[in-house]
Design a protein around this nucleic acid. Structure first.
Lengths: 202, 202
DNA sequence: CGGCGGATTGATAAGATTCAAATGGCGTGG
DNA sequence: CCACGCCATTTGAATCTTATCAATCCGCCG
């Protein structure tokens, strides 16, 4: 069992619907619940002083919000309209105690998140801008987000600024990189938020 | 209980001693054990193609090696001579199942690690070089590593390259930044690997 | 059919990297 | 205990990438 939803199956939860740009929780707040995305896309971000915004990750259906178990260390916002399953902390910990296998699943999920952050860190610190964008697009592709008109097409739900703040670039640079990838024949844009990838890989 | 060692207290483990630059495990290998640092300092790193090296984090006494539960997604090397407690995977999972509180402790530790990686990511993506080094030195200071001649002195066990690969900079840049911090009066070097900090904070 | 915000394009400048060379510290062996 | 040699660190100058500032374009929604 490696699926969070199965691990928490049967535990009480509430459905939450949030609109684009609305926040699910904010950094610093005490954690009331554990959230699992059901539909849509969230961004997990850390806000710095002067409006600087680091997007730690984007969350897609089936993924759990790992951003604190006592107090949130990041904020969550909806990138698109989304629906979320909220398990109360009580229900969560009760399940963790009662079902070792569920605990194991959550631990494995946390480890996957750590691995992902590790790669993210690697790309951002040791990769040039173009390589970062390639990596991001490939990652998006594997998420297989519903929204493309066909299987070939990759849907990019977030804005250029979101991508920029995820990759540690300026939005203008992201825009220029899309152009560069397109002129190299590595992708074809079929809209501002959808494209067809032909990456030869990073 | 928030200490990993207490959580695993009583579980069987082996002492491992490793010398400087020796590896404890390598990325890709199956995980044989869960390691807790007892003495010394390790670096957790991801190796890229052409010898590029991203140091995800440094591990100090009391910290656990979160780098995969099935297969290591990073390698661990000794920054200094170190001694490690190795808990077999069996012993680890047995304890996790039997003792919900231990599982909770490990989950909290994983969450702390996630939080730390989040901040790391933030600094590296949205901070200028000088701010990154400040942040690193402050972080080191809070680790309170044994080795300084007195309480004022901060011991820096790792090389400039290690710092560079941790912060996503060139070693030369790190060197220049030390100079800059010193000329600004924010630190005083009392040796290549020890200094006294007077940071006004980032 | 506006109008508005996100996306793109252009020109310039700042910051960090790179390559190259000199210096220094540390451990080793005599 | 001292001298030597090696490797890490530091310093210097030129280059390159990406950020920044500014203006325009485009698409989407009312």
């Amino acid at each position: 069992m490696t699926d969070i939803r199965s691990a928490l199956l049967g535990a009480e939860f509430q459905h939450i619907a949030i609109r684009k740009h609305q926040s699910l929780f904010r950094a610093g707040q005490p954690v009331r619940a554990i959230y699992v995305v059901e539909r849509g896309c969230l961004r997990l971000q850390i806000n710095g002083g002067d409006g600087e915004r680091e997007i730690v990750t984007f969350l897609f259906p089936g993924e759990m919000s790992f951003a604190g178990l006592n107090r949130h260390w990041a904020s969550a916002y909806a990138v698109t309209e989304a629906s979320i399953a909220a398990y109360s902390l009580d229900a969560f910990w009760t399940r963790m105690s009662a079902d070792p296998e569920a605990a194991m699943t959550v631990l494995l999920a946390a480890d996957h998140m750590l691995e992902h952050l590790g790669r993210h860190l690697q790309m951002v610190t040791h990769g040039k801008a173009l390589r970062r964008l390639r990596w991001f697009l490939e990652w998006l592709q594997t998420r297989d987000i519903p929204g493309g008109s066909d299987a070939e097409e990759t849907f990019i739900p977030m804005s250029r600024s979101d991508i920029a703040d995820f990759l540690g670039l300026a939005p203008e640079t992201v825009s220029r990189l899309f152009l560069r990838l397109e002129s190299r024949g590595e992708l074809r844009r079929t809209g501002a938020h959808r494209c067809i990838l032909q990456l030869a890989s990073a």
